[in-house]
Simulated scan of single mutants.
Amino acid sequence: MTDVKTVILIPARYASTRYPGKPLATLRGSDGVAKPLLQWTWEVARAVPEADAVYVATDDDRIAEAARGFGAEVIMTDPDCRNGTERCADALARAGLSPEVVVNLQGDAPLTPAWFLSDLIGAMRADATLDAATPVLRCDPATLEMFRQDRRAGRVGGTTAVFDGAGRGLYFSKEVIPFTGDAVFDAGDTVPVFHHVGVYAYRPAALAAYLGWAPGPLETLEGLEQLRFLENGARLQCVEVEGRGRVFWELNNPEDVDRIETILRAEST
């Protein structure tokens, strides 16, 4: 295949403990048309001007067939890939691609604005010392309450992030960090919690190194692939992005379908 400077890979698997078949779950927009979650995500990737190519990376024939049905290019990957980062590394090798930047847009975030990815790619291009980068979005009170609702209901929902003054990632968790307890935040307040956006950009060398590292205790306990970079001393940069009035949330559980469809309808009116 022809070399590209920036490629977006959308890793998608059918098996999921919390939500089997999630990439093919349908979401209905304001026009009443239902599309698979994977298609919504692919359309986000296609809207990123810096992307030279977009591929769905999967090991499942059902996902591959659906992706080709709405026009996506597909790279079949090893079924033993343990997470999206490993699947991206495998896809890159199988496709013979040699980009400068690889973007992993996980298939469960149809509300990800294209400018989040543009900002991420820009950060990687501006600083050659970065091994990888990922966006973070400061929570507003409504988003913080969604995190708290999930925790009260015993659901594992979105991920939060903490980072140092230079933006270098310190930790990511499925708990709400830093601890805020029952603190009340009103509209306009500065909420000290950052929502981790499930997108990554990597150098190809960092992806290759990642495959050589065994999952560590933090990654294993949290179930968060990005912690493997931190546990091995790699520089994972948190890039703060702006919502510009848009609400961001991922589809983590079946209960999120109604949340996301409500947001999709509101943003299209």
Rank of each mutant, 00 (worst) to 15 (best):
D164E: 08
L111P: 07
T2Q: 13
D189K: 08
T269V: 13
R94K: 14
T269Q: 11
M1P: 10
E225A: 15
H196W: 12
A183D: 07
P178L: 09
L38G: 04
A34H: 08
N83G: 13
L264A: 08
R94V: 01
F248H: 14
K5V: 00
A209K: 10
L117F: 01
D150Q: 10
V103C: 09
A214T: 13
D60G: 01
E73T: 14
F147G: 03
P192Q: 08
C238E: 06
L24T: 11
P141E: 09
G32E: 07
V4K: 11
G167F: 07
M124D: 03
A206E: 10
E100S: 12
R228P: 06
T6A: 11
A15K: 11
A205D: 15
D108W: 14
M1F: 05
A183Y: 02
D31M: 11
S16V: 07
R168Y: 14
P110F: 09
V7M: 08
Y14N: 11
V184A: 10
A51S: 03
D140Y: 01
D131P: 02
N252C: 11
L92D: 05
L264I: 09
E145P: 07
L218E: 15
F172W: 11
A214D: 13
R28N: 02
V101R: 05
A123T: 07
A205P: 04
R82S: 08
T77W: 02
L144T: 09
L130T: 00
R125S: 02
R87A: 15
F116Q: 06
L120R: 01
D119Y: 03
T58Q: 06
G216N: 10
L111R: 06
E231T: 01
D182F: 09
D59W: 00
A234T: 05
L9N: 05
D90P: 04
Q149G: 09
A209I: 02
A12N: 03
R87H: 06
G69H: 05
V199M: 11
A123L: 03
D108H: 15
D78Q: 04
V184M: 13
Y200V: 03
D31A: 13
T269G: 13
T2L: 10
G198D: 14
T77H: 01
G245P: 09
A206I: 01
T112R: 12
T17E: 14
G188M: 05
L137E: 02
A72T: 03
F248V: 00
M124I: 02
R13E: 14
V257E: 10
A89W: 04
P99Y: 04
E222Q: 15
E175Y: 09
R62L: 13
R151A: 14
R148T: 09
V176H: 04
H195Q: 15
G32H: 08
E43A: 15
E65N: 08
A128G: 12
L251I: 15
P215T: 10
A91G: 12
V199T: 05
A206F: 04
E50N: 02
G84F: 05
N83K: 00
R138S: 12
D80A: 15
R94T: 00
E240Q: 11
N104D: 11
D52S: 07
A51F: 06
V247W: 13
D164Y: 04
E222M: 13
A153G: 05
Y55C: 03
V44R: 10
P36D: 04
L218I: 05
A25R: 13
V191K: 13
R265Q: 08
I63P: 07
A187R: 10
M1I: 02
V56I: 12
A93C: 00
A67K: 01
P110S: 04
P99V: 08
G158N: 13
G21Q: 09
A126N: 10
